[in-house]
Every structure is written in C-alpha cells, then in structure tokens.
Design a protein around this nucleic acid. Structure first.
Lengths: 220, 220
DNA sequence: TGTACATCAGTGAACGCGCGTTCACTGATGTAC
DNA sequence: TGTACATCAGTGAACGCGCGTTCACTGATGTAC
C-alpha cells in the first residue's frame, strides 16, 4: 500500500476526500448510487435515505434534485434506457446495412443488460411511469429505443428475413419475445434442468430463429 | 330487499355475521383477501397487517398459518398458478387432439389472466421463490404448468405446426413470447399509438403466427 | 353422557425499525455594480 | 478588485406512519376415559 504520510502534510487525507458543502454533481451521483444499491442489495433495499447516505449526503439533500422517490426511480429507469440506447446505437453503426446482425446483436445486448443488472432491468421496464407526462425524458428515450427496434424490423422485412407486414406489430412481437425470455430467466422461472442444457443465449437465439424465415447462426 | 325483522329475534343479524373465535378457513381466506388487495390497491399496498385486517382478524393471526409475509406471497403465487392450471386443463380437454387450438387458447387465457389480475400476474411469476425448496407446492404447480405447455409444444411439432426440435426449447420460447408480450402490456410499455391500432389479443396472435409454420386464425 | 385436559387458533400489547417528507436553517456561489 | 446581495444546494431535527414480528395470553375445540 502506498505510504502517503509524507504527502499528508501537504494534502492531508481529510482534504483529499474533503466533503464540499456543494457536491457539484449530486443529481447524477444519486442515480448511479441508486443503481449500485439495486445491484448489490436489490429493489427492496432501495430507499431515498439509503441512496442519500451512500452518496455521502444528508437524507434531505435529494429533494433539491428530485421531487420525490418516484422521480429518482424514473431517473434511474431513464438511465437504464439510455445505456441500452447507447449500446444499440453502437451496434447499429458497427453492423450498418446488416439488419439481421443488428437484430441479433441488439437482442443479445438486451439479454446481457438484464443478466448484468437484474433489478435495474426490472425498474427500467417496470412502468414507474403511471403518469407518463411527469417524466418526459423517460418517455423520450423509451420512444427512441422503440424506434431503433422498429427500424431494424423494417430493414429485416426489406431483406425478406420477415414477411413484409406491419413493422409496428413485428417490432412489438420481437420485443415481447426477447423481453419475456429475459424476464423469465431473471425471475428464476426457467427450470434448472432446462437451463442446465441451454444457456440463456441459446434460448434467445432459438426464439429468434423461431420467428425469422432464415437461419440465425449462433456464431453471429 | 327481504325483510328479515321477524327472524331477527331468532337469528339476530349479530348472530348471522357473528365472528367466531375460530375462523375455520382463515388460511384460504387470507390468500383470497391478499389477491383482492392486489387487485384493488396494487402490490405496494400488500401488507400482512392489511390482509389480516381485511379478513377481520387480528394482525397476528396470520402467523398461525404462514411463517412470514413471504410465505403468504408464495401461497398467493401458488393460487395464481393454480388458476392458470385449472383453466389450461379445461382447454386441453375441450380441444383434445387439436394442439394448435390448445396453444392459442392457453396463450389467450394467459393474456386474459394477466389483464384481469395485473398484480397477481406479477406476483405469480415474480420469483418470490428464491429459496424454492421452502415452497414445494409452488414448485410443483409451476412444473405442472410447464409440463402442460411442453405437451402442447410436442403435439404441435407432431402436427408440423413447428419444426420437430427440442420441445423444451420450443416451450420456453413460446412461454417467453407470450409472457413478454403480456408483461410489456401490463407495465404500460407499449405505446398508446400501437395499442390504439392493435388490441392485446391481436398482438398476441401476431406473435404466435410469427412463430408457427401455419396460419393462426384470429377467429379461433 | 360428562369431565379433564391437551391442543389449536385466535387476541392485543409491545418492540424496534426505516421510511418519505417537511421545515427552518446555513454555508457556498455567482453576479451586478 | 471589492462588496452587497440573491440564489442555490446543502444540513439536521422532527413528524407521523405502517410495517413485520414476537410474546404472554385466552377462548374454543376435540379427544380419552
């Protein structure tokens, strides 16, 4: 361990970690801390007070940035959607003009996101948003993600990967298929026996294969 | 309204509704009351104390029947699965030797169950069951329901409705597709615009059609 | 049929807890002049 | 550059609440004799 004692006079530990009265980036910190709590302790442990405490701030401080607990959760859901959106955008770019790959890769990314962040996944799609209009940023990113999927569906149709039908319907159908599979896995609904013989990814590729008119290679 | 006054002497109202010290059927009553709370006030309002109160019993009484809150929830999930199982059994019988109809009808019943009991649906498939072995009745009914689906999948394969492949995989795939669609709808994830043009049932049939090698008629 | 007694399924008081939220306040920051 | 002041983003005490769970208890029931 690095011995800092000789710097301690100039930069005492106290100062290095010194709490400033104004945090500077508290709003975003609260969102990230909330996600961390979700990952480490699960949804049941998520309280405004705990988020504030873990962010090193008094329990009333979050109210300077969020109207109430629900608003923080909406912000966390927005962050979840944003991470998916960024990953999706990257995939779209890397596999430009390869709609089947775009479909498979974004589906796998959706699965990975869920496996890596089970409770954030739940919150992201939990429909916190009873009063949608209260959280315009969340609504917007949700729509953007759906739009990406819809574009992929359209292009897949154009290539004959799916019948040329209503792209909205197809997009919802694909989303439902992937979302359902991930949900079942995360919620422990798939029997151990089935899971022992089939990885989540294999289950996913099987489902996609079932829907397409062409073969979806596992090696993609 | 029937005038009961002349019976009142013999059977005073007080007696007709008289609370017996021993309830007689409290365990099941608690489960049903819990489900009612779920339906009327949602998952967030479900507490052991409220369930006890609504069952007309002291708040400690449930502990004579359930080890803790989790055990009651497991019992409610078991009840949810049981309702689905009974409906499924009925469908299997009515549409004996018609596997495609069995598939479509059970899928629709799954959708209906979710639409009619959103929060019971959530609890039923929430994976309360971290420690599965603690709730053998729940595990058993879960397996029975999956077995039904697996049987249907097998028979569909035999009829060429699906490629003859691993029936477990197909069953999981079908389950995921239906489950995901219902989840997305219940959680308000499908945009109003899409829903305005497509009923939940239409979305469901579209998805099933997408997976089968034959046409699934909407009129089924 | 009557009685003694074990067992069962309730009661109600109590415990301790963490929670969301409000409020009067204060320290820090930025801006106009 | 210095000062006055408005605004912002924190603090910490306090409120009231419902919750899960435990415990000593008691009323009702069923059974052995």
């Amino acid at each position: 361990m690095l011995n800092l004692s000789k710097y301690a006079v100039l930069y005492p530990v106290k100062n290095m970690k010194q709490k400033k009265y104004h945090h500077g980036n508290l709003k975003n910190t609260l969102i990230q801390v909330g996600i961390k709590i979700l990952a480490e302790e699960g949804i049941g442990a998520l309280s405004l007070r705990k988020v504030a405490k873990n962010a090193g701030v008094s329990h009333a401080a979050p109210y300077a940035h969020f109207k109430d607990k629900r608003a923080l959760i909406a912000a966390m859901a927005t962050e979840g959607h944003t991470r998916i959106y960024e990953k999706n955008s990257e995939i779209i770019e890397v596999f430009a003009d390869m709609p089947l790959q775009q479909l498979v890769k974004t589906a796998c990314a959706y699965l990975d996101f869920g496996m890596d962040n089970p409770d954030l996944f739940r919150i992201t799609f939990s429909g916190v948003v009873e009063r949608e209009r209260d959280y315009p940023a969340l609504v917007e990113i949700t729509q953007k993600n759906f739009e990406i999927l819809r574009e992929i569906a359209l292009r897949c149709q154009a290539e004959g990967i799916f019948d040329a039908d209503d792209a909205d319907l197809l997009a919802v159908s694909l989303w439902g298929t992937v979302h359902g599979l991930v949900s079942l896995i995360l919620q422990g609904q798939i029997s151990g026996e089935v899971l022992a013989h089939n990885s989540p990814r294999k289950l996913l590729l099987f489902s996609l294969n079932q829907m397409t008119r062409v073969e979806v290679g596992a090696g993609l």
